[in-house]
Write a protein that binds this DNA or RNA. Structure first.
Length: 435
RNA sequence: GGAGAGGUGGCUGAGUGGUCGAAAGCGUCGGUUUGCUAAACCGAUGAGGGCCCCAAAGCCCUCCGCAGGUUCGAAUCCUGUCCUCUCCGCCA
C-alpha cells in the first residue's frame, strides 16, 4: 500500500457536512443531474452510529477482561475469565460484521455524491462563454483544410500505418509534427517553470486506488481507462492522476503550500462509445501526450489558484497565437470531482467550430479526501484536507489540430508559430510528397 | 527474476505476548532566564471516530505499512500482500 485509506474517509464530501446540510446536498445533486438517495444516507448513518457504539462497548468490556487476566495471580481465576473473554470476542466479531456491512452500503452512497458547486458556476446543462483570447478568428481567402488533409499534404501523420500496428484511434506523427510535439512540450514547460511549477515526467501507469482517488473508475462498462490484466494497474488518462497521487497519504506543512507541479505524460483513453464527426484525425485519439499542471493549496487559496491556472492556459495559447474562447462549465457537465471548471476551446477552421483544448478544475477537497492528503498549520492541533486543482497546459494532439488549421496558408504550407521556431528550426512547413 | 534485511509518532530510533499510543533524542509550541539573539532550564506536544454537550473538561473505541490469523490479551507470534534497502542475475 502506498497510502492508507481511512475507513469512511475516502468519500468526496465530509460526512458531517452532508448530514448537516441535507437539503443543500439534495439540491446540488439535482443541479448536477446525479441521483443519490440522501434520505437513505441519513438513515444509514444513524444505524452506523448505533453499531459503532455497540462495537466500542464490546471492545471496552473485552479489554477489561483481558487486563484483569493479566493482573490476576491465581491460575484458576484466570481460566474462569478466559471463557468470558472468548464469548465477548464472538459478540465483537458479530457486531463488527454488522458495522462493516452498514459502512459498506453507506460508503457506496457517499461515493456517488458529487462535489459541491461553486456558486458562480452556471446551473444546468448550458455552459457559458466568458471571454475570448487575444488572437482573432482568422478569415481565409480560400477554403481552409482540416488537419487530416493538411497532414497528408505535408506528410505529418500516418493513421493507416497506426491502424495496422495498433488499431483505430492511433497515429504516427512524422517529420515536423514530431518537432512540433517536442517544441510544444518545451514551450509549455518553459512557461510553467517561469510560473513556479516544478517540472516532472510521470509514470504512465498508476494503481487503481490512485485512479479512484482522483475520481476515475478503472473498471466497468463505461470506463475510459485501459487496465493492465493481472495487475491493479491502469494506463493513466492524464498526468492529473499521477501528480495527485504524488502526495497521497502525506500531511504537508501549510507553509509549504501552494505546491505547484507540472507533469509530462502519455494519456490513454478508451473513448468507449465516442464515434462520429469529431473523432476524425487527431481530435479524439486513444493516446496522446500532455503537459499537465497540478496544484495543492490551502482551502482558502483554491479559488484564486483556479483563476491563476486559467490565466496560465490563456498565456500559453495567446502566446501560440491560437484563437480561443473560455467556457465556464455548467453544473450538469462538471463531472464528480470538480467544484468549478473552465475549458479553453480553440477555433478549428477545418471543423468550422470551437473544440476543447484545455480544461482546468478546482476539485476542492474531493480528491484530497480520497487520497488522504492533509495540511497542518504550524503550532496548531489537527489537520485538514488540502485542495487540489488541475489544468491542461498543452494537450499535444489537440494543440496540433489548432496550430495546423489556424496557421495554414493559401499555398498549402503551414507557418510555424513564432514561439515554437527555436525548437522546430524553421518558419514554414512546406507540402511534400508522402514518403 | 533469485537471496537477505527492514517498514514504529513531524524526524531519528528503542521496544519479541499483558496498563505500550508506545522509551530516548531531535524538532515544534509555551514559559523562565536574558540588553538582543543564542544557549541553558521547566512544561506541553500524534491522528481518526464515538459518548457527553452551550462550551470546556472528561470518558470510551480504533490506529505501530496494509489485510487476515492465533490468543482472554498482539507493535511484539503466524500467513498473505505492498513498499524500501543491500547483494546477485537480466537488461535500455
Amino acid at each position: 500500500m502506498v497510502f492508507d485509506f481511512q475507513p469512511l474517509d475516502d468519500i468526496m464530501l465530509d460526512r458531517k457536512f452532508i448530514l448537516e446540510n441535507v437539503e443543500l446536498i439534495k439540491q446540488n445533486c439535482a443541479n448536477r443531474g446525479v441521483r443519490v438517495d440522501i434520505d437513505r444516507v441519513v438513515a444509514l448513518d444513524a444505524q452506523r452510529k448505533a453499531a459503532q457504539t455497540r462495537v466500542d462497548d464490546l471492545n471496552r468490556r473485552a479489554n477489561e477482561v483481558a487486563r484483569s487476566i493479566g493482573k490476576a495471580k491465581d491460575p484458576a481465576q484466570r481460566e474462569a475469565r478466559k471463557e468470558e473473554g472468548r464469548q465477548l470476542r464472538e459478540s465483537t466479531v458479530a457486531a463488527q460484521a454488522e458495522l462493516d456491512r452498514i459502512e459498506a452500503e453507506l460508503g457506496t452512497l457517499l461515493r456517488a455524491i458529487p462535489n459541491l458547486t461553486h456558486p458562480a458556476a452556471p446551473v444546468g446543462m448550458e455552459s457559458v462563454e466568458q471571454f475570448r483570447g487575444k488572437t482573432p478568428v482568422p478569415s481565409f481567402g480560400f477554403k481552409p483544410l482540416d488537419h487530416v488533409e493538411l497532414g497528408e499534404k505535408l506528410d505529418l501523420m500516418d493513421f493507416e500505418a497506426a491502424a495496422r500496428v495498433t488499431g483505430h484511434g492511433f497515429y504516427f506523427l512524422k517529420n515536423e509534427a514530431v518537432l512540433l510535439e517536442l517544441a510544444l512540450q518545451r514551450y509549455a514547460l518553459d512557461i510553467l517553470i517561469d510560473e513556479g511549477f516544478t517540472p516532472t515526467t510521470t509514470p504512465d501507469l498508476a494503481r487503481n486506488e490512485v485512479l479512484e482517488g482522483i475520481g476515475f473508475i478503472p473498471r466497468g462498462p463505461e470506463t475510459q481507462i485501459y487496465s493492465i490484466e493481472g495487475t491493479d494497474l491502469s494506463l493513466v488518462a492524464t498526468a492529473e492522476i499521477t501528480l495527485g497521487g504524488l502526495l497521497s497519504g502525506q500531511t504537508i506543512d501549510e507553509e509549504a503550500l501552494p505546491i505547484k507541479v507540472c507533469g509530462i505524460s502519455h494519456c490513454f483513453r478508451t473513448e468507449a462509445g465516442a464515434h462520429g464527426k469529431a473523432t476524425r484525425g487527431l481530435f479524439r485519439v486513444h493516446q496522446f501526450t500532455k503537459v499537465e499542471m497540478f496544484a495543492f493549496t490551502r482551502p482558502d487559496e483554491s479559488d484564486a489558484m483556479l483563476d491563476d491556472l486559467l490565466r496560465i492556459e490563456c498565456r500559453i495559447f495567446d502566446g501560440l497565437g491560437i484563437p480561443y474562447r473560455v467556457i465556464d462549465t455548467a453544473s450538469g457537465d462538471l463531472g464528480g470531482p470538480a467544484y468549478r471548471k473552465f475549458d479553453l476551446e480553440a477555433w478549428m477552421p477545418g471543423r468550422g467550430e470551437f473544440g476543447e483544448i484545455t480544461s482546468t478544475s478546482n476539485c476542492t477537497d474531493y480528491q484530497a479526501r480520497r487520497l488522504n492528503i492533509r495540511c497542518r498549520r504550524k503550532g496548531e492541533k489537527g489537520t485538514r484536507f488540502v485542495h487540489t486543482l488541475n489544468g491542461t497546459a498543452i494537450a499535444i494532439s489537440r494543440a496540433l489540430v489548432a496550430i495546423l488549421e489556424n496557421y495554414q496558408q493559401a499555398d498549402g504550407a503551414v507557418v510555424v508559430p513564432e514561439v515554437l521556431r527555436p525548437w522546430v528550426g524553421k518558419e514554414r512547413i512546406e507540402p511534400r510528397p508522402r514518403a
